[in-house]
């Protein structure tokens, strides 16, 4: 990781049993994870899975109902100036004042953020050829997204949260936006959390992954560890899940054979592998889709997090 020690040694984000209830409904529950500084985190899940709830608690706009949340080692209290200053945020619809010029927006940003770096904001506009005197409503959707990103980066916050930042953009504007975002990550070591529906585009962006469904965390960890912990097995149809060397995450049965995405236990795979089995590595998109298709009540544990951290072994939790 090239961004070690950007903000001390504290992880960018640590949650334990984090949850938020809206009336009688839990928007998110039992969320426990530790994200290292410098990571680029992909946050994936269907609508209503709890992505925005998690993001808004992280940026300090929403108070957790239960559990702990630390951003760079400090407990976050919602709406405190300190919490808000530590996180840059790019919202889904890039809320900007349409009648303001780009320069006006930057003026507002400077007034509201003590750590504002005007040079960062204007240099990005120069590089992108967006005139500061242009009104927001005269900009394309892609340019508006770039203004939002420039404002979030000019805060010089060590954590940047983006909620579906490119869902309204055309493919070229998306690519341009992601280029700017990744270049900023390379330059400053900012930790990034980006919520997105577009799984195929996330692979190149993120080295850390969180999958949410129905307000529950299905999967969280470094992408490489998660991929290494799963295999796609092709087995005779009669093979029962219990005979597989690990937990079956997703199974597709054909007439004679079944393909099963399995969270493998390496020792059991070595001991149990049969000659007629096909064993293949799992791709990013395949892994995400398998977990998205799981019922949200299914058993979850967290092999990658356990492997990445010394300490007590992970429990297999049935919910």
């Amino acid at each position: 990781m090239i961004h070690d020690d950007v903000v001390g040694n504290a992880p960018a984000l640590r949650t334990a049993g984090l949850g938020r209830r809206y009336g009688h409904v839990w928007g998110l529950r039992d969320c426990t994870l530790t994200v290292p500084a410098g990571a680029v985190v992909g946050l994936v899940g269907p609508n209503g899975a709890g992505k925005t709830t998690l993001l808004q608690m992280i940026i300090g706009l929403l108070q957790p109902t239960e559990g702990q949340l630390e951003v760079f080692g400090e407990t976050t209290r919602a709406n405190s100036a300190k919490a808000l200053a530590r996180v840059g945020y790019v919202a889904q619809d890039h809320p900007l004042y349409r009648d303001f010029t780009v320069a006006d927006m930057f003026h507002l940003g400077r007034a509201m953020n003590p750590s504002w770096d005007q040079g960062v904001a204007t240099a990005r506009m120069d590089a992108l050829g967006i005139p500061l005197k242009r009104k927001i409503k005269g900009l394309s959707g892609g340019q508006q997204a770039q203004v939002s990103l420039a404002m979030a980066l000019a805060k010089r916050a060590p954590l940047l949260a983006l909620d579906e930042p490119v869902s309204s953009l055309d493919p070229i504007a998306r690519l341009d936006f992601m280029r700017e975002l990744m270049a900023a990550a390379a330059d400053t070591g900012v930790t990034v959390i980006v919520a997105s529906h577009v799984v195929s585009e996330l692979e190149r962006l993120c080295d850390w992954l969180i999958v949410l469904t129905g307000g529950r965390m299905q999967l969280a960890g470094p992408v490489d560890d998660l991929l290494a912990a799963h295999r796609l097995l092709t087995v005779p149809r009669a093979t029962r899940d219990a005979e597989l060397p690990g937990l079956a995450i997703h199974r597709a049965d054909s007439d004679r054979h079944s393909t099963v995405l399995v969270r493998i236990d390496p020792a059991r795979l070595a001991a149990q592998e049969r000659r007629e089995w096909g064993v293949e590595p799992v791709g990013f998109e395949q892994l995400v889709l398998a977990y998205l298709q799981r019922p949200s009540g299914a058993s979850t544990d967290n092999p990658a997090q356990a492997a990445a951290r010394p300490g007590p072994a992970t429990k297999e939790v049935t919910r």
């Binding site: 990781m1 090239i2 961004h3 410098g38 990571a39 680029v40 690519l175 992601m178 280029r179 975002l181 990744m182 270049a183 990550a185 390379a186 330059d187 190149r204 962006l205 993120c206 080295d207």
Partner: peptide, 17 residues
């Protein structure tokens, strides 16, 4: 450079490293 690859491909810098 890492930065060049990152800007060219819109890819995570850690991946290039």
């Amino acid at each position: 450079t890492v930065k060049d690859v990152v800007s060219d491909l819109a890819i995570n810098p850690n991946t290039v490293v």
